[in-house]
Design a protein around this nucleic acid. Structure first.
Length: 427
RNA sequence: GGAGAAGUAUCGAAGUGGUUAUAACGGCCCCGACUCGAAAUCGGGUUGCCCUGGAAGGGGCACGAGGGUUCGAAUCCCUCCUUCUCCGCCA
């Protein structure tokens, strides 16, 4: 949610900033509603003040034996007029709410305008691995090594699902353990949230109402009580402090959560994304911070740094991209992606998205903090960063660390959990 | 799933149709007095949001949420939510 006062005071500035996302929004109608709303409120409050005064006088007059019939009649008529204006006000406020709720966040000043093609590579780690043999695709590797069972995953869940088996499950779990261990060491609080969330949670995160089609709805949930399976733990973590006022001295609050992420990904399958690059369910550890406005820029750098170190610890070649405005999610103001090299696809794929939402989500969820100096309540800033999603890390590991004999070297940091330094074919 | 009870400020809690949401009373917290200092005691302060205004100020709304009745609702009625107790079922 944007601040309507900002639009009221600088409609041109906001419109231009949103143009970086390649959308053009005319605020004329909105500002019209806004003016109507405020004049209605003023008139209503005058009438209500009158009613309050009249209602206070009635018992006094009665006590003194004065006939109040005409005054009561007057108040009754006033009450009727108030009702009419209140209905009008409600209608215009709904329109404003709908309009505002549909607006995306304003990209930060230093974010490039335009689409994906304008994403900028900020940093690169390592180099593309060179193979002295014909490298294999991760689907072939994980299948022959017995790490993933795609066929039975589809049989029991449907297209877009797979089963981690044996060493594959061990490797997957080792990644999660590795991430968790790092975050705990950095002082982040470990959270295991519910996987089913209510509509308001989706709204606060900025996913609803626009992206309701992208999540799995729970069948049978009634209108107004819609529930869905979380597409990312971010949705749970942003709502953890919904409708709360935090103390400034408690900020920044640093959380991380593990959850599977469930996404419809309707229509986004492509031949080159076979395997586990894009599924309906994948595991992810998500970092999240609630900060003061002053802290949020630093916090974003911290989160990106943490995510990068995780990938570096695995020894995987990757790059960090600063996304252009159109590629930044609707609720976010600035985003860095960490993209990992997938040799078979000859492409870098996102394993972490680190974003600053500024006060956008806080406004939607009414999350504030009390400033120590002014004692005033202000919207805080929220940030999220994957740390990390595993579904592309595992393919990168098997592809980047594959050997000529079809075996795969286990990254050093994972060995204590996997229990071996090399994964070999089961056949 | 069934029966019952309850939701008022930071917490406990009073208030069951009117001139007290300036939300009694108490706790916490903050400031001050007393004190060498502290405890105790005494005095004072302490909800949020919105509209208007340059400001000072003025006004409105909110008693779990949303409707209704009424000139007037924390108080009466309806729907929903949450919590607690008991029963049932159960990983």
């Amino acid at each position: 949610m944007l601040d309507i006062a900002r639009i009221r005071n600088n409609p041109g500035e906001v419109r231009n900033a949103l143009k970086k996302r390649l959308i053009d929004i005319d605020f004329t109608e909105l500002l019209d509603w806004d003016a109507t709303r405020r004049s209605l409120i003023t008139r209503l409050e005058e009438m209500k003040a009158k009613r309050n005064k009249g209602s206070g006088e009635i018992p006094l007059l009665k006590k003194n034996g004065v006939d109040v019939t005409s005054l009561v009649g007057e108040m009754k008529a006033l009450g009727y007029d108030i009702q009419i204006l209140e209905d009008e006000l409600k209608a215009v406020e709904e329109k404003i709410q709908d309009f505002m709720g549909g607006l995306p966040n304003i990209p930060a000043n230093d974010v490039m305008a335009g689409g994906k093609e304008n994403n900028q590579v900020a940093r690169v780690f390592g180099e593309k691995p060179e193979f002295s043999f014909q490298p294999k695709h991760h689907v072939d590797l994980v299948t022959s090594l017995g790490l993933i069972d795609y066929e039975r995953g589809v049989k029991i869940g449907g297209s877009g699902f797979w089963v981690y088996t044996g060493d594959g499950a061990l490797l997957e779990w080792a990644l999660l353990n590795y991430f968790i261990e790092e975050h705990i060491r950095d002082g982040y609080c470990f959270m295991l949230p519910p996987h089913i969330l209510n509509w308001q949670s989706g709204y606060t995160a900025g996913q609803f109402p626009k992206f309701e089609e992208d999540v799995f709805r729970i069948e049978g949930s009634e209108e107004g009580k819609m529930q869905f399976i979380l597409p990312t733990a971010e949705t749970a973590l942003i709502n953890y402090h919904r409708n709360e006022i935090l103390n400034e001295e408690d900020l920044p609050k640093k959380y991380f959560a593990y959850s599977p992420c469930y996404r419809k990904e309707a229509g986004s399958y492509r031949a080159e994304e076979r395997g586990m690059i894009r599924g309906h369910q994948f595991n992810k550890v998500e970092m999240f911070q609630y900060t003061t406005p002053e802290q949020s820029e630093t916090a974003l750098e911290e989160l990106v740094g943490k995510a990068e170190r995780l990938v570096q610890g695995l020894g995987l070649h990757h790059q960090v991209s600063k996304l252009a405005a159109q590629d930044v999610g609707a609720g976010m103001g600035k985003t860095y992606d960490i993209e990992i090299w997938i040799p078979s696809m000859n492409i870098y794929k996102e394993v972490s998205s680190c974003s600053n939402a500024y006060d956008y989500q806080a406004r939607r969820g009414n999350i504030r903090y009390r400033r120590k100096d002014t004692k005033k309540n202000e919207y805080l800033h929220t940030l999220n960063a994957s740390g990390l999603a595993t579904s592309r890390v595992l393919p990168a590991i098997v592809e980047q660390f594959q050997q000529e004999d079809g075996s795969v070297t286990v990254p050093e940091v994972l060995r204590k959990w996997v229990g071996k330094d090399r994964l070999r074919s089961i056949r």
